[in-house]
Amino acid sequence: MNAPLVSVVIPVHDRAHYLGPAIDSVQSQTHKPVELIVVDDGSSDGSAQVAEERGARVIRQCQRGVSAARNAGIEAATGDYIAFLDSDDLWPEDRLARQVVHLERHPELEFVLAYAMMFVDPDSPTPSWLPTGWLAGVHTVDLPGVQPPGPGQAGPVAAGMTLVARARLFERIGGYDPSYTTGQDIELLTRAADAGAAYERLPFVALNYRLHETNSSPPMNQGMPDMLRLLRASVIRRRALR
């Protein structure tokens, strides 16, 4: 039986310097085949060229935000599964293989999640927004075979961006909600769970989350107004089901 095709969507806006390593981490995945879709969200720094040079399929759009960019990628995807990577982050090479194998073995699941390690970009100064000592206080999980975080690292932490979903999930619940400026991944996951989508979080690190000066959503400031709004929406959905 042929291995299933996985569509990987990378939205990017002016992150040409990080995009190359992000794409490389997708192209070095042990799982193949992969359809790599980079959605250039109005970049002016040559991000699209970086993607094209590496053989990615590039979709260009005027800047409409990360959710609209991910949705454009979902729309264009032809794979059995869809995964997402932010343009400044990296994947371990076995990430897709582990998650896709699990989904293949468990047809009742509609998506899987895993964990992320955070790391301060070693080639840049420590981000000015990162409070001293914050990394040491991050709530972490013990995972088999995962070494404790070293200096400038934190984790493993549960992370929404470790999502790998069956393509049909998006046909059922729609894509990312562009009205959220933060917490978009959590909004999508709550909506999926409220719709009864079965999922598991697998006990391994599937994402290396880079901390740098220009993170769009620094992790200690995950847009609490958006978080409260998405949870209220979830409460209303759940009440309607009772």
């Binding site: 549960a158 000066e213 620094p218």
Partner: peptide
Amino acid sequence: QDFLMLYGSSVRQEPLAPVG
């Protein structure tokens, strides 16, 4: 719980100033 236990480290009520 699986989605919200993200970082959980001494977040005060007052959100920090947004960055970037």
